[in-house]
């Protein structure tokens, strides 16, 4: 049995508390701390980590690192400030890597 974590600014992630996810309110500027947090969560048996876009945009190398492993799955969710398409961009990049060009 695995757990689920949500990382982001407090306002955006509060509601997930109601569904039993563990929430970690962080400051998007604290890149190093956030990287450490993600690493800790990954080794603590969290299968699913949701990260808000605002936080995730500074953590691309960590996301890249965990994209090679089966678990955890790190997924990007929009924050209250709205979405600027980071997840779509990453999907596009994957398609380009796999197919050789952007076919979307």
């Amino acid at each position: 049995m695995y757990k689920m974590a949500v990382v982001g600014d407090r306002e955006s992630i509060l509601i997930f508390k109601a569904f039993g996810a563990d929430i970690f309110a962080v400051d998007e500027g604290e890149t190093l701390q956030n990287k450490k947090l993600i690493n800790r969560l990954a080794s603590d048996g969290y299968a699913l980590i949701l990260v808000t876009e605002q936080v995730a945009k500074h953590l691309s190398d960590v996301l890249e690192h965990f994209s090679r492993d089966l678990l955890p799955a790190i997924s990007i969710i929009p924050s209250v400030e709205g979405s600027f398409g980071l997840a779509e961009m990453m999907l596009k990049k994957n398609v380009e890597r796999a197919v050789g060009m952007n076919i979307l």
Binding site: Y2, K3, M4, A18, F19, G20, A47, L48, A73
Partner: peptide, 30 residues
């Protein structure tokens, strides 16, 4: 929300797509 009794339980099973192991999540709360 803190008093929510739910705990997030995700069941993870593995699936194989052409020999590539991929996870499948089953989220009980939903």
């Amino acid at each position: 929300f803190m008093s929510s009794g739910n705990s997030s339980n995700i069941e993870v099973t593995e699936k194989s797509i052409m020999g590539v192991r991929v996870p499948q999540f089953d989220y009980s709360v939903s």
